[in-house]
């Protein structure tokens, strides 16, 4: 019998090692978060006490609240902006400066984040903007826009304009066409985009750290401060909670995206 020529000896092992390496750090953090000992790497027994310590840490709760506030508002603004831009850029006819607009919408992906971060820092200091929360929301909205835009655009491009044209032929106004035909069809894309924008905002360190001011510390900036003081089991517990939340979000987002794809 002829063996499968597509197989390479040792490839399976390499892939197995690769996935082990990919998940090792996550497993280590989760594992040591249940360690009772104060020292991170000295295992003395199972305990949930660091979770208790993390959840009753008011600075942490404040940081989570700041992060959620910024992420929710930035996601809403970015998704709305991206949705409007995608509708014009994909469906609009004879749009002026279409290519330039497309570059502008995706600009945050083309510039190193640290450069944009110092740029907004200088701008905000020049115009005397001092509201920490507003600064974060403005900066986050900007870098979230492309992440919301790309899935929405992909969805619109993959969708035939036939339904919208049929609705127009039946004398539906542009707004009715959008609300009753376009939006329901692209909703999975809008949802995926909003989810990505939300995760990017929650995850952001570089910009938030640059703009950080007293009382407006986001979760990653707070964690960074803890890490600089040294590794602790409480930090592992906090990280595990974040890992759990991210994996939950990722699973919801992916399953909804796939379900949406199955329907159309």
């Amino acid at each position: 019998m002829r063996q499968d020529v597509r197989r390479y000896p040792g490839l399976g092992l390499l892939v197995l090692l690769f996935f082990g390496w990919l998940y090792l750090p996550i497993a280590v953090v989760i594992g040591f978060s249940f360690n009772e000992n104060r020292l991170v790497s000295v295992w003395t027994g199972f305990s949930l006490k660091w979770y208790g310590a993390a959840l009753s840490n008011s600075a942490l709760v404040d940081a989570v609240r700041t992060s959620l506030t910024v992420a929710l508002i930035a996601t809403a603004l970015a998704t709305l902006t991206a949705l409007m831009a995608a509708l014009v850029l994909v469906r609009g006819r004879d749009v002026r400066a279409r290519r330039l607009s497309e570059v502008v919408v995706n600009l945050p992906l083309l510039l190193p984040e640290i450069v944009v971060a110092v740029a907004v820092l200088i701008l905000f200091s020049q115009i005397g903007l001092t509201n920490g929360l507003l600064k974060l929301i403005l900066a986050h909205t900007a870098f979230c826009i492309p992440f919301a835009f790309l899935p929405i655009r992909a969805r619109l491009q993959g969708m035939t304009p036939d339904f919208e044209e049929a609705a127009q032929d039946l004398y539906a106004s542009p707004w009715v066409v959008f609300r009753r035909v376009t939006l329901p069809l692209i909703l999975p894309g809008v949802f995926a985009g909003a989810m990505l924008a939300f995760v990017m905002s929650m995850d952001d360190f570089i910009t938030s750290n640059m703009l950080a001011s007293g009382g407006n510390t986001t979760l990653p900036v707070y964690i960074f401060g803890l890490i600089k003081q040294g590794t602790t089991p409480e930090l592992n517990a906090i990280s595990t909670l974040i890992i759990a939340a991210s994996l939950l979000l990722a699973t919801i987002a992916l399953s909804l995206t796939f379900r949406g794809r199955g329907k159309s």
């Binding site: 991206a82 014009v88 749009v95 502008v104 600009l107 200088i122």
Partner: peptide
């Protein structure tokens, strides 16, 4: 015209928080 104002928010946000500040960085 939706073709104009639909793109306006994106241009305003990117103009204010990216293009203008990057210009300032070059000046600084």
């Amino acid at each position: 015209d939706f073709r104009l104002w639909g793109l306006l928010p994106a241009w305003v946000i990117m103009g204010f928080t990216l293009i203008l500040p990057i210009g300032i960085v070059v000046l600084v």
